[in-house]
Design a binder for these strands. Structure first.
Lengths: 165, 165
DNA sequence: CTGTTTATGTTATATTATAACAATCTCTGT
DNA sequence: ACAGAGATTGTTATAATATAACATAAACAG
């Protein structure tokens, strides 16, 4: 097994500096958008902040509820457009098995991402193990298939929840 | 790369004997249910037949529309319950990235399954490469995570569609 | 044949997502 | 500054996916 540099975002300890995670993510986002000529408007920036705020996958309508507290005219398209933008510049990932969204732990480098999702507490860890990604892609190509996007999501129990039922 | 015994269901050629696929699947389903003491009622059997009928992922409401032609009182719960049953005995898989369902190519053996999904024609191939499954599970366990279920879906272009845009 | 469990019917509603068009903002060239 | 073009957001409506809750009926165990 390769070393753990494949771990982009581990499960977080209870008392980690959450605010710092969010600030770092926003700083990285500014840089990514500047580099790509994408426009990180206040709305988009705020939605990204809300996504990171949870440090777990967040559903679109939960974001919408929060956003409505501060922006009365927010409607579903408001959120979905912001999410679409953030997906397009890869600042967030969509967790297909939850219909929810998480901040991308390493937006500066393109990657598919592999997600460990805890059934107990909802926490998510993001991996990027190139061995897995490559093996999957090789398998696909061996069948004449041209891979474009990988969705790899593992549900189970995080270390903290493994002890419980 | 290991040989192709990891391929449970390849992409199908145009003129393959589709009816035989469906009949074989229903036969296998009878056996699996008999073995597990699960009750494959006419309704559940019919829904499984409809899922296999398409030989591609089918959405719940498409199944419902079809079913309504022959069973007037069918409603969303009718379909969702049948699908839940079929999932529980692993006769079908849910494709998370499409909100759709496909017949399981090898219901007699428990497996997570890896899916190649063509953006062009919607066809799906099902793999079960133990190397991938094991590597993913090992990675998870190395982080103290207890894996329960793997969702691995690769979208791209099947051999027939790769030539096109 | 009777109570219990399993399966299905039925109505209503929750959740997730997009279509379509209007208004506003931003940026560019002049 | 101003006009035009393109991008972003507002607004209303609705589509698509899924489940809750309770009623009825079928299967089957004692």
């Amino acid at each position: 097994m390769a070393p753990n540099d494949a771990v982009l975002a581990p499960f977080r300890k209870q008392g980690h500096d959450h605010g710092k995670c969010v600030r770092d993510a926003l700083t990285a986002a500014e840089q990514v958008c500047a580099r790509e000529g994408a426009s990180l408007t206040p709305l988009r920036r705020r939605v990204l902040e809300l996504v990171w705020g949870a440090h777990a996958p967040v559903r679109a309508y939960d974001l919408l509820d929060t956003l409505r507290g501060e922006r009365r005219r927010a409607a579903p398209p408001t959120i979905y457009r912001a999410l679409d933008f953030l997906l397009s510049v890869r600042l967030i990932h969509r967790i297909e098995s939850l219909n929810a969204f998480v901040g991308c732990a390493d937006p500066k480098h393109s990657h598919g991402g592999q997600f460990l999702i805890c059934d107990g507490c909802g926490a998510v860890a993001e991996l990027d193990d190139p061995t897995i990604a490559r093996r999957v892609a090789d398998r696909a190509r061996a069948l004449g298939f041209t891979p474009r996007r990988q969705t790899i999501e593992i549900s189970g129990r995080c270390p903290d929840c493994a002890a419980d039922g």
